[in-house]
């Protein structure tokens, strides 16, 4: 009845975080890889249950901090020592103690930009349109319901068998998401 080419996936709805957690880990054990879960708050261990262990955010933030701080110090050193040394109050041109505050601020700024925009970028946001939004009742994903979606592009996906499998996890209901 539904073909894989017009289907995004199958969406199972649960009422508790524990049920979703169990469903996610069982799906992974059953061999499904391309899936996602949706919850109104971060459920502890859910990402791990889905097989997500890598998180590049810390590296991105570290690089952002390095870039911000490095540029900050270089900017002050270059402009005060190389480009236009001006004697102010007899202080050395390379007044390193006085370069620290701005270096520090720019380190934080660089890291914060990296954290927020890195998070958005890696998450593929902004993405105002997404197939799952069309599912009736999905608005509860930001209120009190928990969803597991097995995507149609999973090699193991088969609309009938996957539906049966999801049925065994005890969802409230299962909806097919069309592209």
């Amino acid at each position: 009845m539904i073909s894989a080419s017009t289907t995004y996936g199958l969406l199972a709805e649960f009422t508790t975080a524990e049920a979703l957690l169990a469903a996610a880990s069982q799906s992974r054990e059953a061999g499904y890889r391309r899936m996602d879960s949706y919850s109104p708050f971060p459920v502890e261990g859910l990402a791990e249950a889905m097989g997500l262990t890598r998180n590049r955010i810390p590296v991105v933030v570290f690089l952002g901090a390095l870039l911000g701080g490095g540029c900050g110090y270089f900017m002050q050193w270059y402009s005060n020592v190389i480009d236009y040394p001006i004697d102010v109050g007899g202080r050395p041109f390379h007044s390193w103690p006085m370069f620290i505050p701005i270096t520090f601020e720019l380190t934080i700024l660089g890291a914060a930009f990296a954290a927020v925009f890195g998070m958005l970028g890696l998450n593929g946001l902004p993405r105002p349109y997404h197939p799952v939004f069309a599912v009736p009742g999905f608005e509860h994903a930001t209120r009190d319901r928990f969803f597991l979606c097995i995507q149609a592009n999973d090699p193991q996906f088969d609309s009938e068998r996957t539906r049966e499998f999801l049925q065994t996890l005890g969802p409230v209901k299962i909806t097919s998401v069309s592209l």
Partner: peptide
């Protein structure tokens, strides 16, 4: 729930 935004968004 209906889509709020067009896919082109």
């Amino acid at each position: 729930m209906p889509q709020i935004f067009h896919p082109a968004m």
